[in-house]
Design a protein around this nucleic acid. Structure first.
Lengths: 169, 169
DNA sequence: TCCTAAGTGGAATCTCAGCTTCCGGTTGTA
DNA sequence: TACAACCGGAAGCTGAGATTCCACTTAGGA
C-alpha cells in the first residue's frame, strides 16, 4: 500500500470513530469521508462496505478497552475501584464506538476475552462486598452501551449516579 | 364530528402513543395509521401534520403525569418516596411519549406547572435528607427523557440502580 | 326509507437522504 | 520518467416515509 493511501486509511478510521461516537453505527459514509478530508470514493476503496469499516473500528476499540482494563487493575487498589475507573474511562474516552466494539459481531474472540476479564473483576468486587451483587457483567456491558448511545446528556450527570447505584448497600 | 370519526380519532391517538413509545417521535405516520386500523388518509384528515398529532399526545401525557404526581404525593409517606413512585410510574407507563410531553414545545403552560410541582417535592426531599442534594429537578427530567429513549433495555435493570444512586448519601 | 355531507382506504406520487459506482485527472515511487 | 496506484466527487440508484387525491361508503337527520 502506498504511503499516502495508508495515511488516508488512518484518517478515515479516526473520522469514523468520531462520527460513530456522535451519530451511531449508521453514521453516513459521506460524513465520515468529509471529516476525514477524503472523497467517498477513497473511503469505499479502503472499506468496501460499512461492515468492514465497523469491523476495523471494533478491532481497535476492543483492544483499547482491554488495555484500559489492564491499566485500571494495576493502578487501582481493589477490584471495585478498578471497575469504576474502567467504566469512567470507557465512557469518557470511547463514546459511541463502545457499542460497536461490544455489541457488534466483530472481533468476537478479543471481545470475549474482555468480557471474561471483566467478569472476574466483578466477582471479586462482589466477594469484597464492594459492589452490589444483584447485577452482573452483562449489566455493566449494557450500561456501557447505554452511555455510548447518549454521549451528550448522560455521562456528565448520570455516570456518577449510576456508579453510586452499583455500590454495595 | 360524526361518532365514527371520533372513535377513529381516539384509536389514532392510542396507536400514536404506542408507536411513539417504541420508535420515538418520528415514528412513521403509516405505522401509526396501520396500528390504528385506519388508512393514512384518515390520519391526515384528523391531524394535518405530525406536529399536531404530537401536540395532542403531549397534551394527554402532561396531564397524566400531573395526575400521577398528585397521586404519588397523597399515597406516599414522604416527598422522596413520592418522587420515586412518580418516576417509576412514568417510566413504566409513559414510555417514550414522556419525551414528547416534557421536551417538546407543546402544552408549555401545563408542562411548566408539572415541573414546578416536581421542583417543590425535590426541595422537600432534599431538606428531609432523603435525596442527594447535588442533583436537581432538571436532572430528574433528563432522567425521564433518557429512559424514554430506551424503553427496552433500561427500565428493567437500571431504573432501580439509578434511583438508588439518587438516594442521600 | 332516502339523501347527502362527512368520512374512508389506500394507490400513486413526491421527496430526500444516503449508498455506491465510475472515471478523468493526480501522484508516489521504482 | 513511467505508470500503477490513488484520488475526488459528480451522477445515478434505492428505499423509506410523507402527502395528496379521489372513487367509494356510511352515519344519521328529515
Amino acid at each position: 500500500m502506498r504511503a499516502d493511501a495508508r495515511r488516508n486509511r488512518d484518517r478515515i478510521l479516526e473520522a469514523a470513530r468520531d462520527a460513530v461516537a456522535e451519530r451511531g453505527a449508521d453514521a453516513p459514509m459521506e460524513l465520515i469521508a468529509r471529516r476525514a478530508g477524503v472523497g467517498v470514493g477513497t473511503l469505499y476503496r479502503r472499506f468496501p462496505d460499512r461492515g468492514m469499516l465497523l469491523a476495523a473500528l471494533a478491532e481497535q476499540y476492543v483492544h483499547e478497552l482491554m488495555d484500559a482494563l489492564d491499566h485500571a487493575v494495576t493502578a487501582e487498589p481493589d477490584a471495585w475501584s478498578a471497575i469504576r475507573a474502567f467504566v469512567v474511562y470507557s465512557v469518557e474516552k470511547g463514546r459511541g464506538a463502545i457499542a460497536v466494539a461490544l455489541a457488534g459481531a466483530s472481533a468476537p474472540q478479543a471481545r470475549q476475552a474482555l468480557v471474561r476479564r471483566l467478569d472476574e473483576l466483578v466477582l471479586l468486587a462482589q466477594a469484597d462486598g464492594a459492589m452490589r451483587s444483584d447485577v452482573g457483567t452483562d449489566d455493566l456491558m449494557e450500561l456501557l452501551n447505554v452511555f455510548a448511545c447518549h454521549p451528550d446528556v448522560i455521562p456528565k450527570r448520570f455516570l456518577p449516579l449510576m456508579l453510586d447505584g452499583l455500590d454495595r448497600r
